[in-house]
Design a protein around this nucleic acid. Sequence first.
DNA 1: CTCCCAAGTGAAATAAATTGCACTTTTTGT
DNA 2: ACAAAAAGTGCAATTTATTTCACTTGGGAG
Lengths: 67, 67
Amino acid sequence: MDFYSIIKERRTLLGLTQQDLADYSGLSLRIIKSIEVGKANPSLITLTKIAEVLGLELVLKIKEMNR
Amino acid sequence: MDFYSIIKERRTLLGLTQQDLADYSGLSLRIIKSIEVGKANPSLITLTKIAEVLGLELVLKIKEMNR
DNA sequence: CTCCCAAGTGAAATAAATTGCACTTTTTGT
DNA sequence: ACAAAAAGTGCAATTTATTTCACTTGGGAG
């Protein structure tokens, strides 16, 4: 699952609107919308702001091989 | 530990120079340098390109509380 | 010490992210 | 069905990331 879907699912799970997420993160409503429909390439700072509001965290980990 | 340190450590662990990482990721040497010294706010696509070369992956997960 | 090679810095140009506004479409509740 | 709220779209303006070039610094090998 991609980042966009995770953000959208997590937001709705928490009962927040896009406007709420925009307000709490300090980002524009427009960019929240664009990100959720997968039409944006957000910066690390932008992603982090969103993650914080949603109780998520961005982790850079060693990729699991095989499987 | 922040992303910048992780990238730098992983790169040196793999025996790569900043130039190598730039070449393999298709990014400019300048942005690789800026990111590693923590003076950049890379986009998701940029981070992903770097992660791929280094055998890392970017994960958006639910934040662990307490501890 | 000197020569390289790798890493760090500055600044201008360009590409792209983010914003703001106006609008349409979809969803939800009554 | 209707109204209101939420979500999605287009575009111009602004801010910022990314590139390119030129240069400096630091560390290791000879």
